[in-house]
C-alpha cells in the first residue's frame, strides 16, 4: 500500500519483462476475431459468442460495485440489450470488450452512486450513454477506486454485520429470514444493515466531496 520500498523495490525485478510480447503497449491481440466472424453470420450468433466470452466476467465485475446478484445481472443484460436493439453492435469502435466493460462499469458505478446518495430518478438509468466516449484516465481510475473502496468498507465491517449484509444483498434474503437463521432479533438485523449502508454511504460521500472540490 505505502512506503518507498514498494516503489523502488519491485521495479528492477520487472525491468527485463517489457521486452516480452505480452507487454508491448500498443499491439492489442485481437482475440475477438471469432466474435466478428459470428457477427458476420447473424447478430444472434455474434451475441451468443459475446455472452460466452464476457457475460460471466462482466457480471462479476458489476458485482464489485453493487453487491447484489440480480442488479449486477440486470445491468449487464441492459448493456447487451441496448447494444443489440439499437443495432450499434455494427459500429463498435476498437473491441467489443472495451465497449462492454466501459458501459457496464459506467452503469454499475452510477447505480451505486444513486443508491447511496439517494438521487435515483427514473430517467437516470435509461439516459445512460454506453459508448464510453467521455471516458478519461481519471474516470477509469475513479471507477477502480470506487469498487476497491466498496470492498474495503465491506471488509472492515464487524464480522456479524458483514455476514448480515452479504446475506441480505448478495443472497437476496429477507431480514426476517436472516434473523431466523442467525438466531438474531429482527431489530438487530435491521441495525446491522443500517450500519453497513451508512459506512458505504460515508465512503462515497467523502469521495464525492473530494471530486467536487477537485472540479471547482
Amino acid at each position: 500500500m505505502t512506503g518507498l520500498d514498494e516503489q523502488t523495490g519491485p521495479a528492477p525485478a520487472r525491468s527485463p519483462q517489457p521486452a516480452g510480447p505480452a507487454n508491448g503497449p500498443v499491439p492489442v491481440r485481437d482475440n475477438e476475431y471469432f466474435v466478428r466472424l459470428a457477427f458476420a453470420e447473424s447478430p444472434r450468433q455474434g451475441f451468443e459468442a459475446l455472452f460466452r466470452l464476457y457475460y460471466q466476467a462482466l457480471c462479476s465485475h458489476a458485482l464489485r460495485f453493487v453487491y447484489t446478484r440480480e442488479v449486477a445481472e440486470d445491468i449487464v443484460g441492459e448493456v447487451f440489450y441496448q447494444l443489440w436493439k439499437t443495432g450499434s453492435y455494427a459500429s463498435v469502435q476498437h473491441t467489443y470488450r472495451t465497449y462492454l466493460y466501459a458501459a457496464v462499469r459506467h452503469r454499475a458505478h452510477n447505480y451505486l452512486r444513486d443508491e447511496l446518495t439517494g438521487t435515483r430518478t427514473p430517467a437516470s438509468l435509461d439516459a445512460l450513454d454506453d459508448t464510453g466516449q467521455t471516458e478519461t484516465p481519471q474516470t477509469l481510475i475513479e471507477y477502480d477506486e470506487t469498487f476497491q473502496r466498496v470492498e474495503q468498507v465491506i471488509h472492515a465491517l464487524p464480522p456479524q454485520c458483514q455476514r448480515v449484509f452479504l446475506m441480505s444483498r448478495f443472497e437476496n434474503r429477507k431480514n426476517q429470514e436472516i434473523a431466523d437463521e442467525l438466531g438474531l432479533a429482527l431489530k438487530t438485523v435491521e441495525a446491522h444493515m443500517a450500519r453497513a449502508l451508512q459506512q458505504l454511504r460515508r465512503v462515497f460521500l467523502s469521495a464525492g466531496l473530494l471530486l467536487a472540490a477537485w472540479l471547482y
Partner: peptide
C-alpha cells in the same frame, strides 16, 4: 478473481 458463478445461457436466451 470471479466474484460469483453465473450462467450465461439462460441470460442470453432471455435477451434474445
Amino acid at each position: 478473481h470471479l466474484q460469483a458463478g453465473t450462467n450465461w445461457q439462460p441470460a442470453f436466451d432471455q435477451l434474445a
